[in-house]
Amino acid sequence: MRAGCLARAARYALLTLASLVVLFPLLFCLSVSLQGDTVAPRLVPELGKLDWRAFVEVFRKEHNMLRWILNSFVVAAAVTLGQVAVSALAAYPLAMLRFPGKTFFFFFFVGSLMIPWESTIIPNYLTIASLHWKDSYQGLILPFLASGFGIFLLRQSFMTLPKELYEAAVIEGCGRARYLASVLLPLSRPALATLAVYAFLTTWNQYYWPLLVIDDPAWRTAQVGITAFRSSEIASFNLQMAANLVVMAPTIVLLVVGQKQLVSGLTAGALKG
């Protein structure tokens, strides 16, 4: 009994240590944000002198703060939904159907991965500007709705399902659309989840595009918005770090809520593989 207890304690100690290492950037952020307006922060704040004003100040100084987080959320969610939908619909025929030009389309999509994003900035910018979509959600969302990576990922995942499954479904009288909705997508949850997380995080972290197509401060996304807390000459980091945490909070909550779903989804795929 005692040996078991000890092993358990050791395991928890190890886990605590590991989580401290993983959480270090966040804890450090928190530590600096609680030390007030100082240019010489310490690693660990003095517990008696915690200064929480930075978190209030972030919202008082930039009234748009909540709006920016909302903007980021709307854009990231829309891009995620869009990419998953477009990728699934494009990957389905590539993986399951036979039609002329299939190879061409496949390489066309995969080939788009070879084009560096930087070289598409100006054409995309011109399109959005000529549509008068600067300072709008459309301008932030539209250029990212389709992704060669997403199509490739889902095609590969769809192809791992046995063809017999499709044939059996067809014999039972299942149409193509229904097969996609009732069989293919539920069985591909791990791949869809991977794509969704990837799309959400990359969109949430976008910097240059939102900077470019947004002029009106109200339309900024959180990542561009929080640069307002940088100071040009001498840096006191408390506001910056508090703003970072405020902007990160929604994604962390999302992770806490969605973790089980995500992890079980991923391992389910691994076991079946």
């Binding site: 002198k49 200064d51 004003r53």
Partner: peptide, 11 residues
């Protein structure tokens, strides 16, 4: 530490 937050800071 929230009691300290009451002090006015520049906006």
């Amino acid at each position: 530490g929230f009691s300290q937050a009451a002090a006015a800071a520049p906006t």
